Amino acid sequence: MNIFLQTHIVKKGETLEQIAEIYHIPDLNILKDHHYLHTPDDSNHLGPTLFAGQEIFIPDQKEIEYYILKKKQVLEERKNRANNLIENGILLPVFNEMDEKIQFIIQDFSDDILQNTSEFDVRLKYLEKEEQLFTFLYQKKLLTINGEKAEMKAYELALKCSACLYPAGLEININRKIHDIKNYHEILKRWKTIQHELLKIYTDENSIAYIEGVRRTIEVKNELIKAYQQDLFLQSYFYPYFKKYTSGKNESNSRYMPERILYKNQHLITIAEDISVTLNAECIDDRSQQEILNHLPMTHAEHDEDELLESKITGNFHLSKQHKLLQQADIIIDSYFYNVKETTKIKLNLK
């Protein structure tokens, strides 16, 4: 630091930018910080307009280099703090930036032979936060089966029944559980209208039984919450979130897929150009394969080894570094039901 401070006396009409250029100062903030360092009471303010005769303290070349180095260090510290918040804290996105359009593709294989490809578009928009509850608008549309609009009667009926469920205002807690349906009464009203029309069109016994099953789910709010909770898209999209990563690693047990199979999960997070989360999960469900397929709770009966489900999940999730919002995901679920390999491949892509 120089003992004698360098100063500049402002000439009429001179600007701060011109003065910075004269002394080869690359950033006006360097000039301002140095000036105020020697004018602590701010009695000589550097406003948008300077006045003739005003004295400005000017840093020398070494001081300019020091300020530049300090700025780089501060930026690096901020970057490291941001990374540590992800690696050693909860992975929580900046949800208020979310209004996403997402392509969701599901491929089902049996013994590695493709059986069906289902595809639909999703809109997911953040609405609000209240305490530790996050509300999202969730809407599905444009479902196709094997690239075509579903025409089978069962598919057609299922689509018409589910039409009333969207858009849904879903309130999700930090455990990725759906706490409430904010527009439940609106959904119920839509269902009443759709149900009345469906019963005019579908008069066979199987269709009526299906409509009745849907009615029992929709007209009991807690049952409808369970149905949304088993939604494969919602499970897939929110899978990497709300987890505590210690040294870039998280281990937990959770239930996945509509069958609610229990898995032991290991998540690894890496931060480079984006945020990547890799998932490896092994089935630890004690139920027999038949109990799982029938959605039955675990009994106290002991099962033979070949009755237990062999299943694993691998996944790769890519999130934007700035807002930590999901950009792309690939998930593979391999299961052996009675020695037949069943595989589900799931893809999420921003549109």
Rank of each mutant, 00 (worst) to 15 (best):
30 I>T: 02
163 A>V: 06
24 H>G: 08
11 K>T: 08
186 E>P: 02
326 L>K: 02
261 I>N: 13
57 F>G: 03
78 R>W: 07
195 Q>W: 04
174 I>R: 12
88 N>Q: 04
199 L>E: 14
227 A>Y: 10
276 S>T: 09
176 R>W: 01
305 E>K: 15
279 L>P: 02
285 D>L: 03
92 L>M: 09
189 K>S: 13
217 T>L: 04
29 N>H: 09
144 T>L: 06
65 E>R: 15
199 L>N: 12
328 Q>L: 09
78 R>F: 10
133 L>R: 13
41 D>A: 01
195 Q>F: 03
23 Y>Q: 00
28 L>H: 08
131 E>C: 05
302 E>R: 14
338 Y>T: 14
339 N>D: 14
244 K>W: 01
48 P>I: 09
333 I>C: 12
350 L>Q: 08
264 K>W: 08
303 H>M: 05
53 G>P: 07
210 Y>R: 12
130 E>W: 03
39 T>K: 12
103 Q>D: 13
318 H>L: 14
93 P>C: 00
287 R>I: 01
57 F>H: 12
123 R>G: 06
136 F>T: 00
210 Y>M: 06
149 K>S: 06
223 E>A: 05
172 I>H: 01
86 I>F: 02
341 K>P: 04
245 Y>I: 00
87 E>R: 07
251 E>R: 12
115 Q>C: 07
82 A>T: 07
15 T>I: 07
254 S>T: 08
236 S>M: 07
309 L>R: 06
116 N>S: 10
311 S>R: 02
29 N>V: 10
342 E>I: 02
193 T>N: 08
165 L>W: 03
290 Q>R: 12
72 K>D: 08
168 A>D: 02
145 I>F: 06
220 V>D: 14
336 Y>F: 15
338 Y>L: 14
21 E>D: 13
228 Y>A: 02
274 D>K: 15
28 L>M: 09
113 I>L: 10
186 E>A: 10
115 Q>H: 10
221 K>A: 07
237 Y>F: 10
309 L>P: 00
63 E>L: 15
221 K>R: 10
74 V>W: 08
197 E>D: 15
330 D>Q: 11
17 E>G: 09
107 Q>A: 05
45 H>W: 09
120 F>H: 13
167 P>V: 00
82 A>Y: 11
58 I>W: 07
256 Y>E: 04
8 H>R: 09
200 K>T: 06
214 V>G: 00
330 D>T: 02
213 G>A: 03
277 V>K: 00
145 I>L: 14
145 I>S: 10
211 I>V: 06
204 D>A: 05
310 E>Q: 12
56 I>S: 09
216 R>N: 11
220 V>K: 11
259 E>D: 06
183 N>H: 06
51 F>D: 07
293 L>H: 02
15 T>S: 14
172 I>Q: 01
272 A>K: 15
199 L>H: 07
196 H>V: 09
241 Y>V: 01
165 L>A: 03
269 I>C: 01
158 A>V: 13
319 L>M: 06
274 D>G: 12
278 T>F: 04
347 K>F: 09
97 E>L: 04
242 F>R: 04
224 L>T: 00
286 D>F: 05
291 E>H: 04
182 K>Q: 13
6 Q>D: 01
141 K>I: 03
95 F>C: 00
3 I>T: 11
185 H>F: 13
103 Q>S: 15
342 E>Y: 06
196 H>P: 05
238 F>S: 07
42 D>A: 13
32 K>Q: 15
94 V>E: 11
191 W>Y: 04
190 R>H: 05
90 I>N: 05
105 I>P: 06
283 C>K: 03
207 S>Y: 12
